[in-house]
Design a protein around this nucleic acid. Structure first.
Lengths: 224, 224
DNA sequence: GAATTTCTAGTGGTCAGACCACGAATGTCT
DNA sequence: AGACATTCGTGGTCTGACCACTAGAAATTC
């Protein structure tokens, strides 16, 4: 989809108000351009030079705006081709922030704890949104392998939970978690089968209980 | 606080790997510089020209990096003064992104769902790590006000949960959430008191039940 | 000596122009 | 028709030049 050249070509005026930097204005203009032209993921936006002309601003200012949007994950640039809108499920943000979070706060306990809780949440969601097919697939997979890859198992579970945000968070947590733990966790199939069966039976209490056993968590305050 | 000039002045090499754009490298260098020098909110970072020299890159590339970080809300620039680190709680980016995202209904659902689940998780953690003093404080606060500010209430709960990761995530989600919802949620004290009492009684089932009622969530699959 | 004013150096903000590297479309040769 | 070369448009980067603004130094005034 290409742009029409019409009205929207109003130049950016030096904003009598004050302050607002040119690159901010460009970001606004771009947003407007995107909505009015109904551009969506994958569509191409005008070249830097064209934007520079149409908006009467320097190309470097256009680039400042585009680079910022790129870092945000909203656009994607391909040298020699152009700049394109990106499939932002909005969740790039979690990624970005998480890197910062993990940087400054290396609390091992928090990482582990958060990972576990998210896994429990997603187990419940998977139960709620149960999909017989994918569950059966997972079951086959588990039953036909020697050992179960914990990461892979929960990846599938969280896919079934069908919550992109949780998925993103979990992926990051998982990586960090694995870098914290030396040992490879290899459990027997039994624990995982028990989880699957609890989901099939739609028994939340049993599901959580099974998870706690899998992770060797004390029941403590979590009495059900 | 000013920077020391030492070792870290390694120039950015043209990355034999490939691709990675200069401005991305600069972002990385800046992050490193910030951590190694223990810079924090309010501190000044080197001027654009100085960074340009020290890293052997063009000033425009430095600016691209800085503008991106600025749009993210990580830094603040004051003409004539310099560039400073900012207390980033992420509001900016949330606001920015939400204006871009809005359409995606599924993303919206994920945000709401994730927020609720994290709140439930933190309620349970708060219960587990119960601190009588802060709980009493919260109770007083709730009982002595006309209406309860939901955000503030859960902020305190999550503080009690004492999990930094959850706290960070929740703050982001909360801002998203609020930008999605038009209405201000104002519940009566009763629901919150019930939550507090469930924590005091260390009754998980009651706690979750109280939460669901507060949020008007159907029990559905979440049978306890 | 103290208060005021003026000047100046340094900072971010912006622009214009020049290359480069790369990709795709086009043209050309066999 | 297929293989190769050219060209054009794109993003990537650097340089140098201004401007607007700020803070602190310097000069001036009282």
């Amino acid at each position: 989809m290409q742009l029409s050249e019409k009205a929207s070509d109003k130049a950016i005026v030096k904003d009598t108000n004050q302050s607002s930097k040119v690159y901010i204005e460009i970001v606004k203009q771009l947003r407007e351009l995107i909505t009015t032209n109904r551009l969506s993921s994958g569509d191409k936006i005008p070249s830097e030079r064209e934007l520079s002309e149409r908006l009467n601003v320097g190309r470097s200012s256009v680039r400042e705006a585009l680079r910022a949007l790129e870092l945000l994950g909203l656009i994607e640039t391909r040298r020699g081709e152009g700049t394109f809108l990106r499939d932002f499920r909005g969740h790039h943000l979690v990624q970005l922030l998480s890197t910062f979070i993990l940087e400054d706060e290396k609390a091992k306990r928090d990482v582990i704890e958060t990972k576990y809780y998210i896994e429990m949440d997603c187990l419940q969601l998977a139960l709620k949104r149960q999909n017989a097919d994918s569950l059966q697939l997972l079951r086959d997979k588990v039953e036909h392998s020697y050992a179960v890859n914990d990461d892979e198992f929960f990846y599938r579970i969280i896919e079934m939970a069908d919550n992109h945000l949780f998925l993103r968070m979990w992926i990051i947590l998982k990586d960090y978690y694995n870098s914290l733990m030396f040992k490879e966790e290899q459990h027997s199939k039994d624990g995982y089968i028990r989880l699957i069966e609890a989901i099939e039976a739609m028994d939340v209490a049993e599901l959580l209980s099974a998870y706690r056993q899998l992770r060797n968590l004390s029941i403590s305050a979590d009495k059900i």
